[in-house]
């Protein structure tokens, strides 16, 4: 069966994911070392040790994302996160930065290393380089590849591959985007946040609600209509005579129906985005995907539509997995 890797922003969400059938749960410490550094989220060192005990007692694994790029002059913060993860008994760490990978390989050789999507390793040469140089055992593929390309990659690499199947969707190559810091000063790479809430301002103007990020208008919606969160790359902008969602519509990823093809493409693990989500959301999505991977393993058809109402703005896409998306 394909491994189901599920998000947890809190210890409660982790327990909910494990109880709902997650094979693995990924989470991060409550600081700038992980790419979901939101207020009120994430794990203290004590939380992590307890989470590992809970998961291991039920046959599930815990993967810890330490996937921001350490700040020059402050690397010890990230190094301590690695030590703490190893002491907590986690099953793997998910890293993006070359320097941190080199440090982990030298100082924590027994701690299994996964390559974060934030490293955007998009071809076999990159993946093999990370495997050879840093002993990376699994790579989370960036969301710029088609299923055919993923299949071709798996024919040329020894390491496991993991792909996103549900949740928020980056349209840019991950870890290679500074749109958020251009508008707000805070970026995924440096601060572990994208389009952060403290830089969002809503303003009722006439019959519209304007949503601004760092003072830049991201979208305007009619009063009373559902307003999506103003994520920069999902905004509505104007270019010459055209106005619209120039980068991406406010959609989220749902690749449920591609699971059989992803399995055939040699993918080892399926990842669900959403460490910022509630435990009830996590539980629902995990249950649905556990059913889907079990159906896939049994050769049954994929369950349809179970997750439609959980997707952002009710619209879902298969993203880059279909070539036409480009």
């Amino acid at each position: 069966m394909m491994e189901l890797v599920c998000p947890a922003g809190t210890p409660a969400a982790l327990r909910a994911a494990v109880d709902a059938g997650a094979h693995s749960v990924y989470c991060g410490f409550a600081d700038e070392t992980n790419a979901r550094n939101f207020p009120g989220l994430n794990f203290s060192p004590d939380d992590m040790a307890q989470a590992v005990a809970y998961a291991h007692a039920r046959g599930a694994k815990v993967l810890v994302a330490i996937n921001t790029f350490p700040r020059a002059g402050a690397e010890p913060i990230w190094h301590r996160a690695l030590s703490c993860a190893e002491q907590s008994g986690v099953d793997a760490v998910i890293l993006a930065d070359i320097g941190l990978l080199a440090h982990a390989a030298a100082r924590h050789p027994k701690l299994r290393r996964h390559l974060s999507v934030q490293a955007a390793a998009a071809n076999p040469d990159a993946i093999n380089l990370y495997a050879e140089a840093f002993g990376v055992r699994r790579v989370v593929l960036p969301r710029v590849l088609t299923v055919e390309e993923i299949s071709a990659i798996n024919r040329e690499v020894e390491v496991e591959t993991e792909v996103f199947v549900f949740g928020g969707l980056c349209v840019m190559a991950e870890g290679r985007c500074s749109l958020s810091s251009y508008a707000t000063g805070q970026s995924p790479n440096m601060n572990g946040v994208c389009s952060p809430a403290e830089h969002v301002a809503y303003s009722e103007e006439g019959h519209e609600l304007a949503a601004r990020l760092g003072g830049f208008t991201i979208h305007r919606t009619p009063k009373g209509a559902p307003a999506p969160y103003p994520t920069l790359c999902k905004g509505c902008f104007t270019s010459g005579p055209q106005t619209g969602h120039i980068f991406e519509d406010p959609v989220s990823l749902d690749a449920t129906r591609l699971i059989p093809r992803l399995a055939k493409a040699g993918v080892s693990a399926l990842k669900i985005e959403g460490r910022q989500r509630s435990r009830s959301y996590v539980a629902q999505v995990v249950r649905a995907f556990r059913a889907a991977v079990e159906a896939q393993a049994a050769g049954d058809p994929m369950p349809e539509g179970a997750l439609a109402r959980l997707t952002e703005g009710q619209a879902a896409t298969t993203g880059a997995y279909a070539k036409r998306w480009r």
Partner: peptide, 16 residues
């Protein structure tokens, strides 16, 4: 600021 698999110029012209 960013690089993508998707071509935004083509998208603005309703092309892939």
């Amino acid at each position: 600021l960013a690089i993508s698999g998707r071509c935004y110029h083509a998208r603005l012209h309703d092309r892939a």
